[in-house]
C-alpha cells in the first residue's frame, strides 16, 4: 500500500491559527472517510487536544541518554569532560555530570578508555497516543522548564502510522523545533495573517524552510482587504492555498474550544477546498 503523505502545519508567528487549520484538516479528512492522524509536535504548548478531545490510550516517558560514571572504574583521565561540547561534565577531582545540560550525544561514553560510562535515560516529557473518534492522535508534552524539544518531537513522529495522512502541528517560530517537525514532511502549510507581523514572520519561516526542499503553501487566516501577504506570495512564487475570512464568530468559537465545523457549517467548504489544494500538491 502506498504511504500516505505527511503534512506539516507551521507558522513563523504564533497565534495565526495553525492549530485551528490542523484540527480542521483532521476533521475534513474524517468527513471524507480518509484515514488521518493528528500529531501535535508543538510540545511546549500542545493545544490540539483541547479541540479534538481525544481519549488517551497510552502514555510513554521520553528520555535522552545521559552519562553515569562508574567511580570504581574511572581513572580520572578527564577525556569525557574534554569531549563534551555542552559543558555537561566537569573534571574536578573526578568527573561531575550535569544531566540537565546533556544533549545525549554519547561522546563521553565513546571516548572513555576504560568503559566507565554507561548511559541512562533522563525523562524530558511524554508521548501520548489515542483516538478522537476515528482520528488517530499523538502528542508530546515537554516537561515545563525543559529546554530540549527536538528529541521529544522526534519521538512524537515515530508514532506515525503510515497508512493514515499525517498532520504535524508544528511549534511556531523558525528555530530547531520547527526544523525537527518539518523534516520528512511531504508538504508544509504555512499559516499567516495579513498584518505586518504576520508577513514578516512568514518571510522568516520561508527562509528557514525553503532550503529543506519541501513544497510550501500559504494559508492567509483572518483575511481582509490588506493584500500585502498575497503580493509577497506571488512575488515568491508561493501558492496561496486558502484565504480564511476574518470572522468574529470564529474567534469566539475557538475561544470556547469548539470546532468551527460544528458551529458554523458554512465554513466546512473552505477546509474542503484547502484540503483539495494540498492533496493535488502531494
Amino acid at each position: 500500500m502506498a504511504r500516505s503523505p505527511a503534512i506539516a502545519i507551521a507558522s513563523g508567528k504564533g497565534g495565526t491559527g495553525k492549530t485551528t487549520v490542523a484540527v480542521h484538516l483532521a476533521a475534513t479528512l474524517l468527513f471524507r472517510k480518509q484515514a488521518v492522524q493528528y500529531l501535535d509536535c508543538d510540545v511546549e504548548e500542545p493545544n490540539g487536544h483541547l479541540f479534538l478531545k481525544p481519549t488517551i490510550e497510552s502514555s510513554a516517558s521520553v528520555g535522552i541518554p545521559v552519562p553515569v560514571v562508574d567511580a570504581a572504574r574511572c581513572i580520572a583521565c578527564g577525556k569525557c569532560a574534554e569531549v563534551c561540547e555542552f559543558n555537561a561534565i566537569a573534571m574536578l577531582k573526578k568527573p561531575l555530570v550535569f544531566p540537565e545540560l546533556c544533549h545525549g550525544c554519547g561522546a563521553c561514553a565513546l571516548v572513555c578508555p576504560v568503559g566507565a560510562i554507561r548511559e541512562t535515560p533522563r525523562a524530558i516529557g511524554v508521548v501520548e497516543t489515542g483516538r478522537a473518534g476515528s482520528i488517530r492522535f499523538a502528542q508530546g508534552r515537554l516537561n515545563v522548564g525543559e529546554p530540549l524539544a527536538p528529541p521529544l518531537i522526534r519521538a512524537v513522529k515515530t508514532r506515525r502510522e503510515p497508512a493514515a495522512v499525517a498532520l504535524y502541528d508544528s511549534p511556531p517560530g523558525t528555530s530547531c523545533p520547527v526544523v525537527a517537525t518539518v523534516r520528512g514532511a511531504d508538504f508544509v502549510v504555512l499559516v499567516t495573517e495579513p498584518t505586518p507581523f504576520g508577513l514578516h514572520d512568514l518571510a522568516l519561516a520561508v527562509a528557514t524552510l525553503r532550503p529543506m526542499g519541501r513544497p510550501l503553501g500559504v494559508v492567509v487566516n483572518r483575511a481582509d482587504d490588506d493584500r500585502r501577504v498575497q503580493d509577497y506570495c506571488q512575488a515568491e512564487n508561493l501558492p496561496v492555498l486558502a484565504e480564511l475570512p476574518d470572522d468574529r464568530r470564529v474567534a469566539e468559537t475557538y475561544a470556547r474550544g469548539e470546532l468551527i465545523f460544528d458551529r458554523l457549517p458554512d465554513w466546512r467548504g473552505r477546509f474542503e477546498t484547502l484540503w483539495a489544494r494540498i492533496e493535488e500538491r502531494t
Binding site: E45, L142, G145, P147, A149, P172
Partner: peptide, 29 residues
C-alpha cells in the same frame, strides 16, 4: 512565546514578568 529554553533565558533574574494571555481554551491551557 512557549515555555522552553528561550523563555527560561528571558525570565531568569528578571524583576517582574507580565503574561499576556487571551480568553481561549488554548490561552488558559
Amino acid at each position: 512565546p512557549g515555555t522552553g529554553c528561550p523563555v527560561i533565558a528571558a525570565l531568569t533574574g528578571a524583576s517582574g514578568v507580565l503574561v499576556v494571555t487571551e480568553p481561549t481554551v488554548s490561552g488558559a491551557h
